[in-house]
Write a protein that binds this DNA or RNA. Structure first.
Lengths: 363, 363
DNA sequence: AATATGTGTGAGATCGATCTCACATTGTCT
DNA sequence: AGACAATGTGAGATCGATCTCACACATATT
C-alpha cells in the first residue's frame, strides 16, 4: 500500500515568535485581563459588565474602572461563537451600483447600525451560483439574518433550506414560488399595466417593450402587466414589439436600435428598468429620434436623470425609500424572536407623468 | 486508570437522526461530527481536511467522505477566534448611494470575493463620530483589513492606533496628515487647476466655485487648485465667487442660486463634486440660466447624466474603476503579510471636454 | 437551634477549530 | 540487535466570553 505523501508543515511556530518580538502589536484587552486587574474572577467580571446575576456594588465599580482603564471591548467573535449568532446582516443584491439597490442597502445599513448590527453586502451579479456560494459563506459565519434579492425563480434549494433551518430571511424586489417567507416587493404587474394603459389612452397602439431576462421575477411581472393592458384594450400583443436585452445601458442601446429599425416601429416604448430607460434615451439620440415628438417613452423605476433630460421622462416610480426600511423591519422583528406568520408586503407604484409621452391621433 | 475505550461508531449518528425528526432546525455539522462519523479524532479530521501534518491515505479518504456526507462546512467564527482574524474586509465610506463610492465598493467586493473574503460596508455619513464607532465595532470582530474614506483630517487617533497595532489599512479618496499608510487618491488639486485653466483660456475671469465643507480633504484640495490657477493667471481670488454648501443636490441648488443672484455673477462655475453639479444644473434651469450661453460649467467627477443633458457637461473625470481595484490590491498585499514601505497611489484626472463651456469674448 | 432565603463569588464547562505534544507504530541504517 | 528516523494518531490546551454550578456567607423565618 502506498503511503501518503508527507504534507510538510515546517517550523512555523519558530517564525511567529520571532516576529512577535519585533512588531510589538499589543493585543486588545480581554475579559481575563480586566478580571485580573480588578482582582476578581472572569465570571464576576462578566457579571459586572453585563449586569446580570449578583455582584457587589463595590466589586462592580472596580470592574467597570478596570475595563475602562484597559480599554476593554468585548470580542464579538467569541461572544458569537458562544451564543450562536453574530450581529451581522447579510445582504445579497444584484449589484450595489444599481441606484435602486444602493438606496436599499444604505437604508438597511442605517437601520442595522442603530441595533448595533453590521451589514455584509454581496453582489450576486444575477448569477445563481454566486448567490448560493455567498449565502453558504455567510452562513458559516453564523450570520442569522439575510436580506436577499434572489436571482432566480428556480433551483432555490438553498433558500428553502434557510427557511427549514429557521434562519430569518427577507426577500426583496422579487419573490420566489414555493418559498414561504417575509418579502417586500412592489406591484410590478400593476405598475406596468398603468403605464401601458396610459399610453393606450394617449392614442398609442403599437407599444414597444424593452425587457430584461425573463428569468428575473420583476421582468416577468412587468411583461405580464404590459400584455394584460394590451389585451384589455383589444390590442393583439405582437412579438415584434418586444425586445429583450440584459440590464445594462449598452445592451439596451442595441436592443432599442433593433426595435426601432423595423419597417413599422413602435410609436411608444416601455422599458422595464432605469438602466434600460437610459439605454433607450441614448439610442434615440443616436438615431435622431426625438421624444416625445417621434416616440413616447415610459420607464419603470424613477432615476435621477429622468428630470434632467428635456423633456423629463415619465416613469412608474417605486417607493424605494420604503423598501429597505420595510425589509429591515421585518428582519429585525424575526430576529427578535417573535415568530409569526410570514408577511408579504407589496407596495403600490405611482405613474409620474412628466413630458415624454405625447398624444397620438393618427396611427 | 481508564483503558482506551474503542470509539463507538454508529451511536452518535443514531442520536442525531433521532433529533432531526423532532426539531427541524438541525445544526450544521461540526468537525466533531465528521470525526465521529469517520471514526477518528478531531485532530486527525482537521489534518485530513486541511491537508497538513501526516494522515494515512485511507483515513484521509474516509474523513473526506464523512465531511461530504454530513455537508460539513467549517465554522468560520471558530476558525477566526482561533487564528485571530476573520476573512472580512471592513469598508467605511461616506455614503454607498454616491455612485463614486458604490462603484468602488462594488469593485472591492468583487476582488475580495475571489480571495474568499467578505465585505462589510459602513456609512460614516461624513461624521467622524460614526466613523470611529464603526471602526471600533469592526475591530472587535477581529477584522483585520480596512478600507476607509476618512471623514476628517483632524482627530484621527483612531486611525493612528490602527497603524500602531499594525492593522492593514488603506485610505481612499482622501489622505490624512500624520498617518503613514497605504492610500489611493486622485490628483484633486491638479484636476481642479486644469478645469480652471481651461475656463480661463476660454476667456472667463469671473469663475465661481461651488464647494463642499472644507474639512473634507478633497474639497480643500480642489479649492486650492482653483485658487492657484487663478493666481497663476493674474486673477485675484474673490470670496464672492465662492459658495459653500453640503454635498447634496438640495443644498447645492440653494448655494448656486445665492451665487448667481449677485449683481455681477460669475460667467462660469466649477463644482467640486457630481451631486453639486447636479444641483447647479437644476438651479440654472429654475433660474432660466442657459448653459453654455449664459454661463459655462465644469464639474469635478464624471456622472452618468453628464452625457444625457443638452449640452453635455464638461467634467474632470477620475479613474473610478481603478481606485477600488488599487485599494483592494494594496490591502491584500498587506494582508498577505509582505510588510513593506507604505505606498501612496495618486491617479491623474482627465478633463473631458463636452459642451458646457463657451468662449467668452467680452467682460 | 435549625432551617430557609438572599447575596456574592469562583471553578470549570461550553461554543468549534486548530495546534502542540506525547505516544505509537513501522521501516531503515549502522 | 539497537538506534533512529519517518509516519500516523489522539488527548488536551487554546482562542475569549458566557453560563451553570457549587459553595460561602449573611440575614430571616419557623
Amino acid at each position: 500500500m502506498l503511503t501518503g505523501i508527507p504534507r510538510i508543515k515546517g517550523a512555523k511556530a519558530a517564525h511567529y515568535s520571532c516576529f512577535e518580538k519585533v512588531e510589538m502589536a499589543q493585543k486588545p484587552a480581554t475579559l481575563k485581563d480586566v478580571a485580573a486587574f480588578a482582582n476578581v474572577s472572569r465570571a464576576t467580571a462578566a457579571r459586572a459588565l453585563n449586569s446580570y446575576g449578583y455582584v457587589g456594588d463595590e466589586t462592580a465599580q472596580r470592574v467597570q474602572e478596570a475595563a475602562e482603564k484597559l480599554g476593554y471591548r468585548g470580542n464579538r467573535l467569541a461572544q458569537a461563537l458562544r451564543n450562536g449568532q453574530l450581529p451581522i446582516i447579510g445582504c445579497i443584491l444584484g449589484d450595489i451600483q444599481n441606484p435602486f439597490f444602493a438606496r436599499i442597502a444604505h437604508d438597511i445599513e442605517a437601520l442595522a447600525r442603530r441595533s448595533r448590527y453590521n451589514l455584509i453586502i454581496g453582489s450576486s451579479e444575477e448569477q445563481l451560483e454566486q448567490e448560493v456560494s455567498l449565502l453558504a459563506s455567510l452562513q458559516s459565519l453564523s450570520i442569522r439574518g439575510f436580506i436577499v434579492a434572489p436571482t432566480s425563480d428556480e433551483n432555490n434549494i438553498h433558500l428553502k433550506r434557510l427557511i427549514e433551518e429557521n434562519v430569518p430571511l427577507v426577500l426583496i424586489d422579487r419573490v420566489v414560488q414555493g418559498i414561504d417567507c417575509d418579502s417586500v416587493v412592489v406591484d410590478n404587474e400593476g405598475g406596468a399595466r398603468k403605464a401601458i394603459e396610459y399610453l393606450i389612452a394617449m392614442g398609442h397602439r403599437r407599444i414597444g417593450l424593452l425587457q430584461d431576462d425573463t428569468r428575473i421575477f420583476t421582468s416577468r411581472a412587468r411583461l405580464s402587466g404590459y400584455q394584460s393592458a394590451l389585451v384589455a384594450a383589444g390590442i393583439n400583443p405582437d412579438d415584434r414589439m418586444i425586445s429583450v436585452s440584459q440590464s445594462t445601458v449598452e445592451h439596451a442601446i442595441d436592443a432599442t436600435i433593433r426595435l426601432f429599425s423595423q419597417k413599422s416601429p413602435p410609436t411608444a416604448l416601455f422599458t422595464v428598468d432605469s438602466l434600460m430607460t437610459q439605454g433607450a434615451l441614448l439610442a434615440f439620440r443616436s438615431m435622431g429620434i426625438s421624444i416625445p415628438h417621434d416616440v413616447s417613452l415610459i420607464g419603470f423605476d424613477d432615476f435621477n436623470l429622468a428630470t434632467f433630460t428635456d423633456p423629463q421622462i415619465t416613469v412608474v416610480a417605486q417607493p424605494v425609500s420604503e423598501i429597505g426600511l420595510a425589509a429591515a423591519r421585518l428582519l429585525f422583528e424575526r430576529l427578535s424572536g417573535h415568530s409569526r406568520q410570514t408577511r408579504q408586503i407589496r407596495f403600490e407604484t405611482k405613474l409620474l407623468v412628466r413630458g415624454s409621452v405625447s398624444r397620438r391621433q393618427d396611427v
